[in-house]
């Protein structure tokens, strides 16, 4: 049988215990939160110290920068998130802006401006869809010799910084390639499949899609026509069967050329 008392005193006792539990819980919570707060402030100052000592590296060394960003995200700190809304009197910029006096932040903002420029300049030829690598190559080619290297990772982070502006810039993964999309346009699955197929050789044709994706002719032709009308494919009519080329391939070819 139950060992609990059965008299009226049992009610008092249970009230007492729950009150004790509550106080104890409160105590635990406060001690936890103070210790957490201490840890956090220690961590913050350490991170700050680290970032300040390595500010130059973060700015100039892309691997280092990527690692630092990865470290921040691993511990749940979004270095690019703006804290201006919730921030206190000194919270004017993002986490990094506070830490580094804006230099890293500025780096990404400047890069974002360049990304927007490249996307704008090439929108006519690619329908507003451009590979991250192409963007990087274009930006690198216009930078003076010996300027700091930028990576695909940096480009993606820069695109992230555009988000608060409510802009239409977003990233999109098709096949093994990441694209930056600068027009608010959704690709349907067929169109994505065509673009993915075009990554292999740089082009597709109707019968290639029919053979490889087992599509009926009409489906292949529709998907291709859609992409052509969006400027996302260019047609080459000087061959047996029309070939539809991905404009991103223009840049890749040149790359190989300059390396060779």
């Amino acid at each position: 049988m139950s060992r609990k008392g059965v008299g009226l005193a049992a009610f008092d006792r249970s009230r007492l215990t729950s009150a004790q539990y509550a106080t104890h819980g409160n105590n635990l919570r406060t001690s936890h939160s103070t210790s957490l707060a201490t840890q956090l402030s220690v961590f913050r100052s350490l991170l700050q110290q680290f970032a300040q000592t390595h500010a130059k590296d973060i700015r100039s060394n892309p691997t280092f920068r990527a690692e630092f960003a990865r470290m921040c995200s691993a511990i749940g700190v979004d270095p690019l998130a703006s804290s201006s809304g919730a921030g206190g009197k000194d919270g004017g910029g993002s986490f990094w802006a506070q830490l580094l006096g804006g230099s890293v932040n500025d780096f990404y903002f400047e890069l974002a401006v360049r990304v927007v420029e490249v996307c704008g300049a090439t929108r006519e030829e690619n329908g507003g869809l451009i590979g991250v690598k192409e963007v990087r190559d274009r930006i690198m080619s216009t930078r003076p010799e010996g300027s700091a290297e930028i990576t695909d990772d940096d480009i993606l982070r820069a695109v992230e910084t555009l988000k608060p502006l409510g802009s239409s810039y977003s990233t999109l993964k098709v096949g093994h390639k990441t694209y930056i999309r600068s027009v608010p346009k959704e690709l349907n699955t067929d169109q994505s499949a065509v673009l993915e197929a075009a990554q292999v050789l740089g082009y597709v044709s109707v019968s290639m899609l029919m053979v490889n994706l087992r599509w009926p002719r009409a489906r292949a032709a529709t998907a291709i026509d859609d992409l052509v009308s969006e400027s996302m494919l260019w047609v080459d009519k000087q061959c047996d069967e029309y070939e539809y080329w991905s404009p991103g391939f223009m840049l890749e070819v040149q790359d190989e050329g300059s390396l060779g």
Partner: peptide, 19 residues
């Protein structure tokens, strides 16, 4: 020659106006 020159569709009149 620029990179475009090695892009086959460069030599075909593109049907889409913006392209």
């Amino acid at each position: 020659f620029p990179r475009d020159y090695h892009f086959p569709p460069y030599f075909t009149r593109q049907p889409t106006l913006t392209t």
